[in-house]
Design a protein around this nucleic acid. Structure first.
Length: 205
DNA sequence: CATAGGATCGCCT
DNA sequence: GGCGATCCTATGT
């Protein structure tokens, strides 16, 4: 039934489609014997060298962005504003620096651990509703940059059969990329629609 | 070498 | 709605 995403899944050159397809998939982390899992509820596509919003725009290649040039199926984790660790999935073949940013999850397992990592006693609105907060809840940090997602590392992404309908998915411009000119307007953000609870209930691993 | 700004968040007003 | 936190990168002298 549930299966880890095959390597081929990540090799598509259509990063925007992959961002859409990652919604409803399940990210699992195992650090220090602590397992947490959440369904992916929000993503953004970053389309490599031709995308002004991408760290790899114009073929920019630095120690930080080097991970984006790897073959798809590894984590790209970087520090944002010097404060937040943001998690991305590298996609496409080697030397095509495409990635999908994780922007939100719905906790499925280990919620108590996630709360602790977030410094909370009880869940509050939006507590895993952003790229920084969801990455923190999952325990992912920049030291995990480059980690393979194929089951040989501490981070995995699974297909648990939550197939989402297009009508339950909203799209829009990406957040915080005003500097990207026209590319800031591209509808490359994907998220589960609000006011729909069919995916929030009766979900367990 | 100096400096500005960023794929954010939480606390303050 | 504004702003500080805090570090990496890119750019300019």
């Amino acid at each position: 039934m549930a299966s880890i995403l095959p390597h081929d899944f990540y090799l598509s050159t259509d990063t925007v489609l992959l961002a859409r397809k990652l919604l409803g998939k399940v990210i699992v982390t195992r650090f220090d014997g602590l397992t947490t899992a959440g369904m992916i509820t929000e993503t953004e596509a970053y389309n490599g060298v031709v995308d002004r919003a991408s760290h790899a725009y114009g073929g920019r290649r630095t120690r930080r962005t080097e991970t984006m040039y790897q073959e798809g199926g590894v984590a790209y984790v970087y520090l944002c504003y010097g404060v937040h660790h943001l998690f991305n999935v590298v996609t496409g073949p080697e030397n095509m620096p495409n990635a999908v940013l994780l922007r939100g999850i719905a906790p499925l397992s280990g919620e108590d651990i996630m709360l602790k990592r977030r410094g909370l006693k009880v869940p509050k609105r939006g507590w895993v509703g952003g790229p920084g907060t969801s990455t923190t809840a999952l325990g992912i940090q920049t030291v995990h940059d480059g980690t393979p997602l194929n089951g040989k590392g501490p981070i995995e992404i699974w297909d648990c059969g939550f197939d989402l309908l297009d009508e339950d998915i909203d799209t829009g411009p990406r957040v915080g990329v005003d500097y990207a000119g026209e590319d800031a307007l591209l509808p490359w953000r994907f998220l589960l629609s609000r006011n729909r609870d069919r995916y929030q209930n009766n979900i367990c691993l």
